[in-house]
Design a protein around this nucleic acid. Structure first.
Lengths: 112, 112
DNA sequence: CCTGTAATAAACCAGAAAGTTAATTATCTT
DNA sequence: AAGATAATTAACTTTCTGGTTTATTACAGG
């Protein structure tokens, strides 16, 4: 799966977004991350694996703990993608102008 | 499913993102949208239903055609969510400062 | 060395997703 | 009324997802 798709699908789950939000406050162990959820530890462990495979978290090692930390870089790709459509939700816009702008931009960054 | 999750999961598919990109250039019928893909028409029809349920497209009616048009408003919610993490991918940052900023912001817009 | 704690792995299950082909509906055209 | 075109619906298959419980691995400390 491409990077953008795997980042988006990793984020398309409220539990995983909550984990990201928690990690924005700093490192945390698996048990700490799991505490707020009404869900087994292995379930949280699986969510972490999804986030890890998407490159959104990294895991260290400290004795029997695996502290997780946020790796936000993949979010940039989403921000970039969505930025192309900003004009479509921001107030009024002239569709033809928008289209022409888009075509011009496409000289450099295309696709998707 | 919550709005943010359904928008993110709708976008977590390259076919659907390509459809969005196409619609940014203006309305299109189902057959027009399906043309670039090596996939049956019903498959595309299903993708459109996913996008519609996420509020990302709207469908009109013109004789036997159902022209689709982009509705980008749900993207705003993603942009807002992701904006909270901008500091984490933009160059260097001081984590404690970031955290404190975040806490302050949370007085107003919380969750997720 | 045994026990407790942190975490992952394995095996399993139910339901959702993404595709297929064949059938159906709706509309225009002649 | 018949036929062609646009699109959806139905029925089905396969694979993925998100959860469970039980078992296993890895480490710390008495």
């Amino acid at each position: 799966m491409d990077q953008l798709s795997s980042t988006l699908s990793a984020l398309a789950d409220p539990t995983r977004r909550a984990i990201i939000a928690r990690l924005a406050a700093g490192e945390a162990t698996v048990n700490e991350l799991a505490a707020p959820f009404d869900m087994s530890l292995p379930a949280v462990s699986k969510h972490l694996k999804v986030l890890e495979r998407a490159g959104l978290i990294a895991r260290g090692r400290n004795a029997q703990w695996r502290p997780c930390r946020l790796q936000a870089e993949p979010l940039k790709e989403i921000a970039d993608w969505i930025g192309r459509y900003r004009q479509f939700w921001e107030g009024s816009f002239d569709r033809l102008d928008s289209y022409l702008d888009e075509l011009q931009r496409n000289d450099k960054s295309n696709q998707d």
